[in-house]
Design a protein around this nucleic acid. Structure first.
Length: 264
DNA sequence: CTGGGGAGGGGGCCC
DNA sequence: TGGGCCCCCTCCCCA
């Protein structure tokens, strides 16, 4: 299954939310504002503060979550907001390397890619990554090519994904090599902190708690999602019936199941 | 069908 | 350059 969500969304300059409240929630989380609808809606900044070219008909957030996100409707907007975003999002969604499934054999490269691979500028390198030794070296081979603007592009031989820096490529390759292994169950992860989160499933540690209901979570993202359940007005709203949902997936399910379209 | 928890993933940013 | 952390997102499963 393609995991297009992993493709970089347009970078948002406001994407630096103040989660200090949430940070503090590790010990004690307190709501700074009551969860009433008027307040929630008032928290929506005017369009000129956001992207003037895009309306936010379906986006509702609460006062705890600074409007740095583009949850639902924006996902369908063209991804053309910043040069960096363009470069990264121009990659194919067929990014098998990011799938949780085992890496599939490298797909035929697009014409532009193959041309750069065949370029005399190409340099091949066998880069030593943890765990890479068990893999065929051909798979681990990296291509360093140059695009028409003479900018180096680093290609992943697993999935053909392109990166502008070797560091970014190395980070990506970890998702193929999975060097972080759980000593308890042997499950492998790409990042140490992913492993740490997994270890909590063994230890039962839940450092993130909601003071609203004292429920604890092992993962900050899950706490964030949980906080939505305390809100009467959720972040994701159906354009057809104005119903709000705490998660985009719930909104999608709602829409796929056939929204009646009438207000609820 | 809906709501929610659990678990996991990748890219970006900062140091 | 690499590690740590953050954010956003998804899938799976269950009530």
């Amino acid at each position: 299954m393609p995991r297009s969500f992993l493709v970089r969304k347009p970078s948002d300059p406001r994407r630096k939310p103040n989660y200090s409240e949430l940070q503090d929630a590790c010990v004690e989380f307190t709501f700074q504002q009551p969860y009433d609808q008027a307040h929630l809606l008032a928290a929506i900044p005017p369009p000129e503060v956001l992207n003037p070219a895009a309306s936010l008909p379906t986006l509702i957030w609460d006062s705890l979550l600074v409007p740095q996100v583009r949850p639902v409707a924006w996902a369908t907007l063209p991804l053309r907001e910043s040069p960096k975003a363009v470069e990264l999002t121009s990659l194919s969604d067929e990014d098998s390397g990011k799938s949780s499934q085992p890496p599939s054999p490298p797909s035929p490269a697009p014409s532009s890619f193959s041309s750069t691979s065949a370029s005399s500028l190409e340099a091949e390198a066998f880069i030593a990554f943890p765990g890479l030794g068990q893999l065929p070296k051909q798979l681990a081979r990296l291509s360093v090519a140059k695009d028409p603007q003479s900018r180096k592009i680093f290609n992943c031989k697993y999935c053909n994904k392109e990166y502008l820096s070797l560091g970014a490529l190395k980070m990506h390759i970890r998702s193929h090599t999975l060097p972080c292994v759980c000593t308890t169950c042997g499950k492998a992860f790409s990042r140490p902190w992913l492993l740490q989160g997994h270890v909590r499933t063994h230890t039962g540690e839940k450092p993130f708690s909601c003071s609203h209901c004292n429920r604890a979570f092992a993962d900050r993202s899950n706490l964030r999602a949980h906080l939505q359940t305390h809100s009467d007005v959720k972040r994701y709203q159906c354009q057809a019936c104005a119903r709000t949902f705490s998660r985009m997936s719930l909104l999608h399910k709602h829409q796929e199941s056939g929204c009646s379209g009438g207000p609820r």
